[in-house]
Amino acid sequence: MASRVLSSQLVFNWRRNPPAILGTLVVLLCAVIVIAGPLLVSQNPYDLRQLSLLDSYKPPVWLDGGDPRYLLGTDGQGRDVMASIVYGTRISAMIGVTAMLMACAIGTTLGLLAGYFGGRLDALIMRVADVQLSFPSMLIALFLMSAFGTGIDKVLIALTAVGWVVYARTVRGSTLGEVQKEYVQAAHVAGLSHAKIILRHVLPNVLTPLIVIATVQVGTFILIEASLSFLGVGVPITRPSLGLLIKNGFDVLFAGLWWNSVFPGLMIMAMVFGINLMGDFLRDELNPRLK
C-alpha cells in the first residue's frame, strides 16, 4: 500500500516536471536505439561487404556533396555515421548499465555484510573504501585499464572496481540504522537466520537511496568509458563505443571533417543529460530532507 502511494505521488510530480519528462523521453529513446538498433539503420557499419570506399568522407546531407543515403555523412571507410552512432550507443549504454548492475550488486552485498555484522569485516571494507574514495574514479579506471589492456570485459571490471564503493558506503550506513530498529530485533527473537533477516527484512529497506546513485552512475560510467576508449585503453577497435568513434573522428578533425566526431559527441551528451535529468528528479523526490 505504502509503495503504491509513493509511486502515485512520484508519477503525479513527474507529470508536473518538464525536465524530468524530457529526461525520461531521452532515456526511452536511447533504450529504443539499444534494443532495436540494427533495425533502425540500413547499414551494418562493421560488415565490410556493405561498405564502399567510394562513399568515404561524405558530408552530412544538408551540405554540398551530401548523399541522401547518409543523413549524417560517412567516415573514411564509407561507414554511415548515423549507423556507427547507433551501434556505438548500444555498446556505450550496455557497458554503462551492466557495470552499474555489477557495481551495485557487489557494493550492496559488501555494505550489508559490513553494516549487519560489523567488527573486523566492517573495518576492513570501510578502510578499503576510504582509500579508494580519496582517488578520482577516472584515475583508478585508467590505472586498471593500463594494467589489463583493452576489452569490453576489462572495461566492465574496471568500472565495477571503481563504482562499488558508493553503494557499500550508503548501504552500510542505512543498514547500521535498520539493525537497531525493533522489526529486526523481532526477527532475531523469532529465530530467523541471518541470511533471511538480511535479504528479506534489511535489504528492501535500504534500497531507495540506491536508485538515485544507480541512475547517475550509468551516466558517469558512460563518460568514463568514453574517456578510456578515447585514450585507446577502453573498448577494442572492432566494437567501437561512442568514445572510440570520437577518437577516430579526432584524427580527421583538423582536415575540417567535423561530422565524424561532432555527432557521436552530441549523442553521448544527450544520453548522459537525459540520465542526469532523471537523476535530479529522483533525488528531489526520494530524498525527504529536501522537501
Binding site: 568514453a226 553521448i268 548522459v272
Partner: peptide, 14 residues
C-alpha cells in the same frame, strides 16, 4: 547539468 553531461575530451576537440 549540460556541463556534467559533456565528455571533457569532446569539449576540447570542439
Amino acid at each position: 547539468l549540460v556541463g556534467i553531461s559533456l565528455p571533457g575530451f569532446w569539449v576540447g576537440m570542439m
